[in-house]
Design a protein around this nucleic acid. Structure first.
Lengths: 354, 354
DNA sequence: GTGAAAGCGCTAACAG
DNA sequence: CTGTTAGCGCTTTCAC
């Protein structure tokens, strides 16, 4: 073992042994200097630090991880990184993680459970915790993961696993209030995927609260939570006239607006449209989309916060879900119901008569 | 050292020692079984595999990394993950990496050189290579990184560092061809950031090729490569009438379209607009944006490919940049020059007269 | 406080 | 092909 102290030869990255030799102390002392945050001003500590960064020493995180079983890495999995919805969450996670000295390992499941599972298997032994931005896994699949590493779920609740969600119910209420205030009385809800947790919550809230505002809501769907899902939704929506539609999310809402416009409807003159999330494109489309804003960035940041707390304390920490507030962003896609009969906007329909 | 073979006690994760003991072979044999891909069907190998996954054994990547100095992690840094441009690149990287058994470590520099530098310092010792999707670092800063780990740069060339770029020149040519074909003779180029590599290349190509198509191009800017940069660009553009504008990228183009529309201009009747990249929002805006498509996903995938090749071979592998083809996507934002005089569309300007 | 020594779980060089 | 033996660079008892 004497060879370890043989000095900083070659272009090799220096180790604690090199530093120890150069500073005339034992390796363990060097180690303490870099792992004990308290020990910053002792006589020797200072000398060691000086020698260290003069030598260009950096602690090797892999070696540290092996002996501590802490990697300072957390994984975040999303279904589609190119979806602005997830991008914002990731940013929040990233920011919160960096702030706490953690690095983020990204997993894009590409909407596939198989890919997610495999990536997770590979990443799990590498990370100290996982943020599930949107998982294709079943509740029990998630619990299995949670058994191996601390997990925080975003936008969904899984019993026994900490989670952060938005206040869907109050979001729905503000949307209803807005629409009812404009004079709408009959609404369509363009539903999201069958298995979607937020979809269930939103629809339930809609059904329960509609009465309070004297409106009637019909559910149509399910539809894929994408723009093309919205395109399909538009086809269904127009079969069942209503003066306004509330979509599962912004993408569906945008798809609906586009398709309806193509079919000759004018928005909001003929139909008002409301989305959920307030992703960036919502303000780019014409007209701008009125939507219930979900604090995506905050969700991500809160999720890491919770995760790191869990990692810190030993116990699994299973409280109720953290719930974040929403607010309604009003843009051009909603207005008072048009003078037109809900049926008229179908007249410019070209070639879909059965 | 005898304690290692003491068997799979407790809830502890099994190690090669546990497997070795259970299978009645030496630890090194187990190790070989999992690290040599060839050795899959030998008599013992099979037994070991059986025992292993019966015990639930998984190789510990951290320990492996410590002794091989290969982590199977690659870092990808981008300036803003919520920018659809980078999202697509990341997806490409992610896909290519997963395919080769690598996991991706994400760094969002949030447009800040300091954040990028710090994150890189933390991540560098952890990864086998780096894809620089968009770096805020100077060329020499990048070379410094490249000295520590293999690096591939996307959308920029740095001498001595491998890179993948798009064929900007031919992209510019097709745009010019399209516009000239429609009858435009006087164009404005809304430039990107001063320091941007693609901006320089595009402007140079524009200047050199304009003559071939009998058109004149004036450069205006620089502008930030964002929608609000485009808003500002619009203000400048309208001072110097031209029948069409080519923007540095889609975001600037979209910003220009929005602002110009607000000012009363009609697109493409009064002004045609062409962008670069073909990010998703380009087809969502009204009218759709005609743009030079950059194969973002392919760029990401190619970049990892190059990176992994570099990691594989010992030598730094410093060839010429890989260049990927572009194609023009024609949408509604371009048309023949309107009957109006280029000056007329300014008339509905409300309240900006000096 | 500091030093010595024993691992973390794996791979790699070397014999047999 | 298999077993033996050193480490990879760091943390962590355990003595002093």
């Amino acid at each position: 073992m004497g060879s370890k102290g043989s000095g900083p030869d070659g272009g090799r990255t220096p180790t604690i042994y090199d530093v120890a030799a150069a500073a005339g102390v034992a390796p363990s002392t060097v180690s303490r200097t870099f792992s004990r945050p308290g020990r910053v001003n002792s006589e020797t500590a200072q000398r060691i630090r000086a020698v260290a960064d003069q030598l260009g020493y950096r602690v090797n995180p892999v070696a540290r991880a092996l002996s501590t079983s802490r990697t300072s890495l957390i994984a975040v999995v999303v279904a589609d990184i190119s979806n602005p919805f997830f991008a914002a969450i990731i940013r929040g996670v990233q920011a919160g993680a960096a702030q706490a000295g953690y690095t983020v390992l990204l997993i894009d499941s590409e909407e596939s459970e198989a890919i997610e599972r495999e990536a997770l298997i590979r990443a799990l032994p590498l990370v100290d915790g996982v943020v599930l931005g949107s998982s294709r896994l079943s509740d029990s699949g998630i619990r299995t993961v949670a058994k191996q590493r601390p997990v925080v779920v975003v936008n969904r609740t899984v019993s026994g696993v900490p989670s952060v969600v938005i206040d869907n119910r109050s979001g729905v209420r503000t949307a209803l209030e807005h629409l009812a205030g404009l004079g709408h009385q009959r609404l369509t809800y363009a539903a999201g995927p069958e298995a979607s947790w937020p979809d269930g919550v939103r629809w339930r809230a809609l059904r329960e609260l509609a009465g309070n505002f004297g409106v009637r809501v019909d559910r149509r769907g399910p539809f894929a939570p994408t723009i093309s899902g919205g395109t399909r939704a538009a086809e269904v929506v127009r079969q069942h006239p209503a003066s306004a539609v509330i979509a599962y999310n912004d993408q569906v809402a945008i798809g609906i607006m586009r398709r309806l416009t193509q079919l000759g409807a004018r928005i909001p003159a003929n139909v008002s449209v409301v989305g959920f999330d307030n992703i960036l494109p919502a303000e780019l489309v014409t007209p701008g989309l009125t939507t219930v804003e979900a604090p995506l960035y905050a969700q991500g940041k809160t999720a890491v916060g919770t995760l790191l707390a869990t990692i810190g304390s030993a116990r699994p920490q299973t409280g109720p879900a953290v719930v974040l507030p929403t607010r309604l962003v009003v843009r051009g896609s909603t207005a008072v119901p048009g003078a037109y009969d809900p049926a008229t906007w179908q007249i410019s329909d070209a070639g879909t008569s059965p």
